[in-house]
């Protein structure tokens, strides 16, 4: 029966994010925190594996200010237990630090595992790096961009999105997989599942529990500045009856002069 670890990142909801009108910096405190989208696809896939093959699903979350309520959401979706490492230095974390911390959480708290499943990229950084870096640390194979998955007796068959179409690949566990939104639709937990999640273990960890020293939380890639991209568009708005709008739309398209008559 496979033990599956799912790495879940809490990020701001980038859809709500507005830049500061003058500095153009993102106003992070005004956007709600949420579980990063693809990480919930990862969790859903892990729970489906458990439903079919048994085993357990462990969620691990590391961040500057982890919200326990969001971790409970993961437990309500079907994870059995969760480990949390919340440390303010992680606000500056790069992929190196993040993968170091997650690997320590797995090593010290999860013990034996068969699969690590991550979202292919996070909602905020979108770097596609955590899964492959974890695989490198544990010296195991990884498969990114998985859109369909079959697990049987220590062998993973995965369909991954590549430029040419879909590559079907196979590897042995232990392995790391990263998934996007194509693989499934994450379930919405029922009230019963939400209530049951209150009793599941959610363990908060300290640096000493993980053998982490301050140096290990120091990023190799240091963020200097984040600024909104500005687009210069004419922003002309048309409103009215469908007939009028259709007429104006056709005129606007033809006025561009790119359509060959």
């Amino acid at each position: 029966m496979p033990d599956v670890v799912v790495c879940v990142k809490q990020t701001v909801d980038v859809y709500q994010l507005k830049p500061h009108p003058e500095t153009l910096a993102p106003q992070l405190s005004q956007a709600q925190p949420k579980n990063s989208d693809f990480d919930l696809n990862a969790l859903e896939e892990a729970v489906r594996i458990k439903e079919k093959h048994g085993g357990r699903v462990v969620v691990i979350t590391a961040g500057a200010e982890v919200k326990p309520l969001l971790v409970r959401e993961c437990l309500a979706m079907g994870a059995d237990e969760a480990y949390v490492f919340s440390h303010r230095d992680l606000a500056r974390a790069d992929g190196y630090v993040t993968s170091t911390v997650l690997s320590k959480m797995i090593e010290k708290k999860v013990g034996k595992w068969d699969l690590i499943i991550c979202g292919e990229a996070s909602l905020d950084e979108g770097a596609y790096q955590t899964g492959p870096m974890l695989a490198e640390i544990f010296n195991v194979p990884h498969v990114s961009y998985v859109n369909r998955l079959e697990y049987e007796d220590g062998v993973v068959k995965a369909w991954k999105t590549v430029e040419e179409g879909v590559a079907v690949v196979r590897c042995r566990t232990p392995a790391v997989l990263t998934v996007g939104l194509e693989i499934n639709t994450p379930r919405l937990p029922s009230l019963l599942m939400i209530r049951a999640a209150q009793k599941k273990p959610l363990v908060e960890l300290k640096p000493e529990d993980l053998g982490l020293n301050p140096e290990m939380l120091n990023p190799l890639a240091e963020r200097q500045q984040v600024k909104a991209l500005k687009t210069e568009r004419r922003r002309k708005i048309f409103e009215g009856k469908p007939e009028e709008l259709a007429e104006q739309l056709v005129e606007t398209i033809l006025a561009e002069g790119v359509v060959k008559k």
Binding site: L17, G126, A221, R223, Q224, V226, A228, L229
Partner: peptide
């Protein structure tokens, strides 16, 4: 590009 592609992040 970060935060969904709407922002530029500079890293050293």
């Amino acid at each position: 590009l970060v935060l969904g592609g709407g922002y530029v992040s500079t890293v050293l």
